[in-house]
Design a protein around this nucleic acid. Structure first.
Length: 717
DNA sequence: AATCCGTCTATTTTT
DNA sequence: TAGACGGATT
């Protein structure tokens, strides 16, 4: 099958045709990682080294899994049915469904998403009379998930103090509650399966024998539990093929552990790591900038991107007075690009945090430029959709208290807090889920809740024999959801979304083999509904740097490159926080194919207050020769000490927060200054005059300080 | 049961 | 600044 390999470079070929042994592929940004992964699978199968059923390929996102399957089917004339290609969660869901009995789960166990999990935790705390001031639900949620993702059940969690001991107790109680209700959170999908395979040798051997070839995408993003799971599944006969890039590890905050790459080398005795360093995406200057920047990180496996293409254009840098001005400049520049024939969807505006999108959106809106913002609520997370799903969940599994409480009185049917309190007490006393305990409730509460349960029961019977789409159609009308939203003033969109849910179900049935209600519910939980509508129009792409990972654009604007924002100030308190910010910056830079803009503003409105910022330290890590300053400035002096930059001559207006700015001191608020000890900074405040004149300076390295002007050796930058 | 109002908070996010 | 949330009011 040499035609499979003919378009690959030598390293890619080596990776694809690697003999049966554990392998680590260090795949740089834009180096053809997905291509190698899929070609490897195609090669294994077409050369008879593996059968489709012997392949297990794990990704992080549904999108990546889908992409892999699409490319595979294009390459191989085989059906991909027997192949297990999916996300960690999707595959483990599949495994647990197949062995639910062994795993101690009901056949129709439901999956809690993050919001469901939180409400389950709140409910638990209330039931146990725990002070949620002292034990904030969010914090407990974090604790539980962190423990599970380390592979630890409550008794094994290390508790250095009473507080943590209590958290561990609550973790145990939470697990009990989930078991009682037959629900499973995201982390549980993996932990359950890990425990099942640990405990059950027969099953473990079965899957080890079956999945001779295990391929892992984005290996740098795996958490501890995922690593343990992979290790467990890899016996001595298995061939594990891990592809990743330590320089693109940007998810430590949610448990990703880059250390897994080093551990993998050690645990699996990897001798040669294949590096894919040829980049097929960007021009040389962009890659040089990325390489130089990431070179400042200490803990790296080491890798340098190169291209056979030319240097291309310089990296453009723009400094503005305010965030508004920055946004306006972006608008102007985008207009020019579009005028030159570039499609809007080939242009991305990236930022570190979501709040930054507002000014830019505002400017784009006023300019009438179509744009699309990524992130935010996804389809299956919408209130009305979750409500509809809750009815469906109850029909599949009446023990699901989260679903029960969500809709027992929605739309309102006269079941108040008192009745529910009674019901919850009764259920607790009997150790039963709410729906089962309801029969024993006397009086008015019993009657109204009884009616609700009969309605669910009635729905269950009414939809017998109907298709999934028809089922949902029935449910959203019969439950009263549609009438309720129709009556609501602003309910039009919600009604529309419920209709969209019916369509989604029809689409699901058309695509999937298992079109059961349970399968659809799992789909809804595991695939939050990638993107929303609006894919038709050619629109500018706005997103955080995190969401841009894996994407590429002709032109990229990276905005808000200011100390405190990028690198984010909160990252400075985290271990290795700055290195992660730098990797984030690296990811951002490597999104651009041809043109890269970096911008920052001296003044930015944040949390309703004007903040004075200085340019990001990352500018100092980019070779000056690669940069083209659009704002005239940048006179680097040949000194060792902090670099000194010239004032932009075009400065339009002074910024003043304090009218008492010392007039004749020669300094003013907003001005860039240099201090012999603290380095470069910006004056953010001033008071007094004459010999009493004091200024407050935000230093890049030393933070915010008040300085007396007649003492401090402050000079204009 | 719906609405109003004050308080609080504020990276990054997939499953 | 703006959104989310919880408690109090209507």
């Amino acid at each position: 099958m040499s035609d499979l390999l003919s378009n690959l470079n030598p390293e890619q070929q080596a990776a694809v045709t690697l003999p049966d042994q554990p392998a680590l592929i260090l795949a740089g940004a834009g180096s053809g990682k997905t291509r190698v992964l899929t070609t490897r699978i195609a090669w294994l199968i077409s050369t008879g080294r593996a059968s489709p059923g012997g392949i297990l390929a794990v990704t992080f996102t549904n999108k990546a899994a889908k992409e892999m399957l699409t490319r595979l089917t294009a390459m191989l004339p085989i059906n991909t049915k027997g192949m297990w290609v999916g996300t960690f969660h999707g595959l483990n869901n599949r495994l647990l469904r197949a062995h639910h009995r062994d795993a101690g789960l009901p056949q129709l166990f439901q999956i809690l998403d993050t919001a469901d999990q939180l409400s389950a935790i709140k409910r638990l705390l209330k039931a146990l009379n725990v002070d949620d001031e002292k034990y904030p639900p969010k914090q407990l949620q974090y604790f539980i998930n962190a423990a599970k993702e380390s592979g630890l059940r409550a008794p094994r969690v290390d508790c250095p103090n009473d507080y943590e001991r209590r958290l561990a107790e609550l973790y145990a109680a939470y697990d009990e509650q989930c078991n009682r209700e037959g629900v499973v959170d995201f982390a549980e999908l993996l932990l359950r399966s890990y425990e099942l395979l640990t405990r059950n040798e027969l099953l473990r051997e079965h899957y080890r024998a079956r999945f001779r070839h295990i391929l892992v995408d984005e290996f740098q993003d795996t958490n501890r539990l995922q690593y343990l799971w992979l290790k467990l599944l890899s016996g001595s006969e298995n061939v594990i093929f891990a592809v990743g890039d330590d320089d693109q590890s940007i998810y430590a905050f949610r448990g990703a552990n880059v250390g897994n790459m080093r551990d993998f080398e050690r645990d699996f005795n990897i001798h040669t790591v294949i590096k894919l360093e040829q980049n097929y995406r960007s021009h040389g200057n962009i890659l040089d900038a990325a390489n130089a920047l990431i070179g400042n990180n200490r803990a790296r496996l080491g890798k340098n991107l190169w291209t056979s293409e030319g240097h291309g254009e310089p990296v453009r840098v723009f400094e503005s007075m305010t965030d508004l001005e920055e946004a306006q400049w972006i608008v102007d520049e985008v207009r020019a690009l579009v005028n030159d024939g570039l499609r809007r969807s080939e242009i991305a505006i990236l930022y570190r945090s979501n709040a930054q999108s507002r000014v830019i959106e505002h400017a784009l809106f006023n300019a009438g430029i179509p744009y699309r913002v990524y992130g935010g609520l996804r389809f299956f997370e919408r209130q009305e959709v979750k409500n509809a799903l809750a009815y469906l969940r109850l029909m599949a599994n009446g023990d699901d208290d989260t679903a029960f409480l969500r809709v027992v009185n929605f739309p309102t049917r006269g079941i108040g807090a008192r009745s529910l309190e009674q019901l919850q007490d009764a259920a607790r006393a009997r150790g039963e889920p709410l729906m089962r305990a309801a029969g024993s409730l006397p009086g008015k509460a019993g009657a109204s809740i009884g009616a609700f349960i009969r309605m669910i029961e009635g729905l269950r019977q009414a939809v017998a024999g109907l298709t999934l789409a028809e089922t949902i159609e029935q449910v959203i009308h019969h439950s009263g959801l549609i009438p309720h939203y129709q009556a609501e003033r602003e309910g039009g969109d919600r009604v529309e979304n419920l209709g969209e849910l019916v369509n989604a179900a029809a689409g699901f049935v058309a695509e999937e083999d298992d079109a059961s209600l349970a399968a659809f519910l799992a789909h809804a939980a595991l695939e939050s509904g990638e993107h929303q509508a609006g894919e038709g129009t050619d629109a500018l792409q706005l997103m955080t740097v995190h969401s841009a990972k894996g994407l590429e654009f002709h032109s990229v604007f990276l905005s808000g490159l200011e100390e405190g924002l990028f690198p984010h100030e909160q990252s400075m308190t985290e271990r290795d926080g700055l290195e992660e910010e730098r990797r984030l910056m690296y990811v951002a830079i490597t999104r651009a194919r041809r043109r890269l803009y970096l911008s920052f503003a001296q003044t930015r409105m944040l949390h309703g207050q004007t903040r004075y910022n200085i340019r990001s330290r990352f500018f100092g890590e980019l070779p000056a020769g690669l940069l083209k300053w659009l704002t005239p400035r940048f006179v680097a002096k040949p000194t060792r000490a902090p670099q000194i930059y010239a004032q932009p001559p075009y400065r339009k207006s002074e910024i003043r927060v304090n009218s008492e700015s010392p007039k004749d001191s020669g300094f003013r608020v907003g001005q860039n200054v240099v201090h012999p000890k603290f380095g470069a900074g910006v004056i953010v405040n001033a008071e007094g005059g004459g010999t009493d004149a004091r200024v407050q300076v935000n230093f890049a390295g030393a933070g915010v300080k008040w300085l007396a002007l007649h003492i401090a050796k402050l000079s204009p930058a």
